[in-house]
Design a protein around this nucleic acid. Structure first.
Length: 567
RNA sequence: GCACUCGUAGCUCAGCUGGAUAGAGCAUUCGCCUUCUAAGCGAACGGUCUCAGGUUCGAAUCCUGACGGGUGUACCA
C-alpha cells in the first residue's frame, strides 16, 4: 500500500481548500515517536515565513481541511506547528483483509515500467572468487530481484573478466601441464595462478610464449582459443558453485564477457573521433572532459583498455539491449571511472540522453586495522570457504535443538541459516560505507541478524501449524501494538519503493527488523492460542501473524534469503 | 598537490530531501520459561553526534574552515 502518496494527496487537497499556496513539495514523514501518532507533516513551520503568519495558526487552519473520513482517524497540532496524523484502525483492517491471500502482500506493479540492465558480480576468470566479490554479487542480486518484483524488466549482465595479458600466461601453463594434470591443478585456481606466475618469472622462454599466446588468442588462433575456452569453462564452474551455494540468480545466459566486446573496440575509437572528442596525447588516444585527467581509450602501443570496453558495453546495453536504466554494482573506488565514461558515452551519443546511468557503489571491505581486507599471509579469503564456514557454524549452533527429526533437515536448516547470516550481514549495512570484515560479526546469530527474522517466521509457522484450521474471519485491531504491527505490514510497499529508488538493500533489512521487533512484542503480549482467548480475537491475531509471515517471506526472498518452517 | 568520501555510545552500525527528549545490535548488569519456539521479551548502563564558525524559528543532517581515517588521481582491471 502506497500510504505516503495517499497522505500527500490528502494534505495537498487540505492546503488547496485552505487556500494556502506552496511551491515546495509536500512530504509527509514518519512520526518521530509513537506517541505523536503514525505520520507527521511539518510544512506549517516552513510556510510561516512566506505567509507571514504564526505556524501554529497555519497548522490549525490546515487540519480543519484534512479529510478524516477514510484512512486518517485523527489529526492534531503539537509543539511549534507539527501536524500529527494517526491512521484509522478500521481502514487498516479493511486493507489488510484484502491482502491476506495476496502473494505480493499488497505490493503493486509500478506504473512506469523500465527496462533495466544491471551489471553485477563480474568476477575475474584468472582467480577464484574471494570475499571481496561478495558485495557486488549480493547487492546486485538483491537490487535486480527488487526491480523485477516491482514490475521492471531486468537484464542481468555478468561482465566476467576473461580477456587480458594474464590469460596468455595461464593458458601457456595449462598447455604445459598436459591432459592428465589439468583437472587436478585447476581445482585450486589460486594455486594455479601462483604456479603459472612462478614459471613466468623463472623462464624467459615460457614468458615469451605467454606473451605470444595473448596475441594469438586475439587473432583467433584455434589452438590457443581452445585452451582459453577450456580455462574459462573451469573457472566459470568455480563461480557457479559459489552462485549456487549463495542462492544467487545469475546464470550462464547472463554472462556477457569482456571478450564479447572485443570486436567493437575499434568502433568506439572511431565514434569518439567522429564526435571530435578524441585527442592524442603522449602517443595515447584520450578523451579530455572538464577535468585535466584524461580518460585513455587506446594505449600508445595500440592496446585497448578497461574504459574502452566499458564504453562499448554502455553502447551495447543502450542500443542493443534497449535499456532505460543501466546500473553498475561496483566498488566505490571506481566512481571516478564511471563518472567519466557515463559523461563521455552521453556526449558521444553512444547512450541516448534520457537513459539513466548509475553507479550503485559500495564501500570497501576492511580488516580490523582499517586497511582493505587481506588475510594475514597477504592473500584473500576465498568466498567458498566463508560460505562453508558459515554453514558449519550454523549447524553447530542448532544441532542440539530437538526440532529436527533427521540429519537431512538439520543440514538443510544449517544451510539456510548460515548463508542467510552472511547475506544479511552484508546487506544490512548502508552499501556506501566501508565496512570491517569480521568472521564473528558475519556469522553472528544474535540481535539484528537474518536468524532473528527467520526465527520469527518459524514461530509464526508453528502457531499456524498448531491451529491447523481454515482461517475465516476479520482482522480487528485491538490495541496499540496491533495497530503498529498492522501499519508496519502495509508500509512494505513504501519501503520497497524507497529501496529501489537508488538501490539500497539496507532499507529493506531495517524494515524487516522493525517489523519483526514489533511482532515479537505483539507475540509476548497478545496470546493467541491460549484457553481464555475468544475465537474472534484468536482469528484476528492469527491473520495478523500470517500477514507478518507473508511479509517476512517476501522481504527475505527479495534479499535472496530463505526461510524454514521449523528452526 | 588536487578531487571524492567518511568521522554518531566501549565495539559494529542506523538516522543525513533540516524538525519535538539522537536510535539499534554487540558487550556489561539485573528481571521473565508448569503458559503459542527464552535463538525471545522487559529494564539498567552507556552520547558536548571530531572540533570551530555560519545559515535558520530549529542543525547529527545544509555551508565554510581545521583536524583525523579511507579512496582516487595518464596508458592495470
Amino acid at each position: 500500500m502506497k500510504i505516503k502518496s495517499k497522505l500527500n494527496q490528502i494534505i495537498k487537497s487540505a492546503l488547496d481548500s485552505a487556500n494556502i499556496e506552496t511551491k515546495e513539495d509536500i512530504t509527509i514523514s514518519d512520526a518521530t515517536k509513537p506517541e505523536f501518532g503514525d505520520y507527521q507533516f511539518n510544512g506549517a513551520m516552513k510556510l510561516a515565513k512566506s505567509l507571514k503568519r504564526n505556524p501554529r495558526e497555519i497548522a490549525l487552519d490546515i487540519i480543519e481541511h484534512i479529510d478524516t473520513t477514510t484512512l486518517i482517524s485523527k489529526v492534531e497540532v503539537a509543539g511549534a506547528g507539527f501536524i500529527n496524523i494517526s491512521i484509522d484502525n478500521g481502514w487498516l483492517s479493511k486493507e489488510l483483509t484484502k491482502i491476506i491471500d495476496d502473494s505480493r502482500v499488497g505490493v503493486g506493479i509500478v506504473e512506469d515500467k523500465k527496462r533495466i540492465v544491471i551489471d553485477y558480480s563480474s568476477p575475474n576468470m584468472a582467480k577464484e572468487m574471494h570475499v571481496g566479490h561478495l558485495r557486488s554479487t549480493i547487492i546486485g542480486d538483491t537490487v535486480a530481484t527488487l526491480f523485477e518484483f516491482l514490475g521492471h524488466t531486468v537484464i542481468r549482465q555478468n561482465h566476467i573478466g576473461d580477456w587480458g595479458t594474464q590469460f596468455g600466461m595461464l593458458i601457456a601453463y595449462l598447455e604445459e601441464l598436459g591432459e592428465e594434470n589439468k583437472r587436478q591443478n585447476l581445482q585450486n585456481l589460486e594455486q594455479f595462478y601462483r604456479d603459472a606466475k612462478v614459471r613466468f618469472d623463472e623462464s624467459p622462454e615460457f614468458a615469451d610464449r605467454a606473451r605470444e599466446y595473448v596475441v594469438k588468442i586475439q587473432q583467433g588462433d584455434a589452438h590457443c582459443l581452445k585452451l582459453w575456452r577450456e580455462f574459462i569453462d573451469i573457472s566459470l564452474g568455480h563461480c557457479e558453485e559459489v552462485y549456487s551455494k549463495l542462492g544467487v540468480k545469475l546464470r550462464k545466459e547472463d554472462v556477457r564477457a569482456e571478450s564479447f566486446y572485443n570486436p567493437m573496440l575499434p568502433k568506439v575509437i572511431d565514434t569518439l573521433r567522429e564526435k571530435g572528442l578524441l585527442v592524442e596525447s603522449n602517443g595515447a588516444k584520450c578523451v579530455f572532459l572538464d577535468s585535466d585527467t584524461p580518460l585513455i581509450v587506446q594505449k600508445s602501443d595500440g592496446g585497448y583498455l578497461y574504459a574502452t570496453t566499458d564504453l562499448a558495453g554502455l553502447e551495447f546495453r543502450a542500443k542493443e539491449l534497449k535499456a532505460d536504466r543501466i546500473s553498475y554494482v561496483v566498488d566505490v573506488r571506481q566512481s571516478e571511472h564511471f563518472r567519466q565514461i557515463f559523461a563521455i558515452a552521453k556526449r558521444a551519443d553512444m547512450v541516448p540522453s534520457d537513459v539513466k546511468l548509475e553507479h550503485i557503489a559500495f564501500g570497501t571491505m576492511m580488516d580490523r586495522s582499517g586497511k582493505p581486507f587481506k588475510t594475514r599471509d597477504g592473500g584473500t579469503v576465498k568466498l567458498i570457504e566463508l560460505l562453508d564456514e558459515a554453514i558449519l557454524r550454523a549447524k553447530e549452533t542448532i544441532k542440539d535443538r530437538d526440532s529436527y527429526s533427521n540429519s537431512e533437515d538439520l543440514d538443510r536448516v544449517a544451510e539456510v541459516i548460515g548463508i542467510g547470516a552472511i547475506k544479511y550481514a552484508d546487506l544490512s549495512i548502508n552499501r556506501e560505507s566501508n565496512y570491517i570484515f569480521s568472521w564473528d560479526k558475519m556469522l553472528s546469530f544474535d540481535g539484528n541478524t537474518a536468524l532473528y527474522i527467520q526465527y520469527a517466521y518459524a514461530r509464526i509457522s508453528s502457531i499456524l501449524r498448531r491451529y491447523n484450521r481454515e482461517l475465516n474471519g476479520n482482522i480487528a485491531i485491538g490495541d496499540e501494538l496491533e495497530h503498529r504491527l498492522a501499519l508496519m505490514i502495509l508500509k512494505f510497499e513504501d519501503t520497497l519503493l524507497k529501496a529501489s529508488e537508488n538501490g539500497y538493500p539496507h532499507i529493506i533489512t531495517s524494515y524487516l527488523y522493525d517489523l519483526v521487533t514489533l511482532f515479537m512484542k505483539f507475540y509476548e503480549n497478545n496470546p493467541i492460542l491460549k484457553d481464555n482467548i475468544d475465537t474472534e480475537t484468536q482469528i484476528s491475531r492469527l491473520l495478523l501473524s500470517k500477514l507478518t509471515a507473508n511479509t517476512i517471506k517476501k522481504g527475505l526472498e527479495i534479499l535472496g534469503i530463505e526461510v524454514v518452517e521449523r528452526i
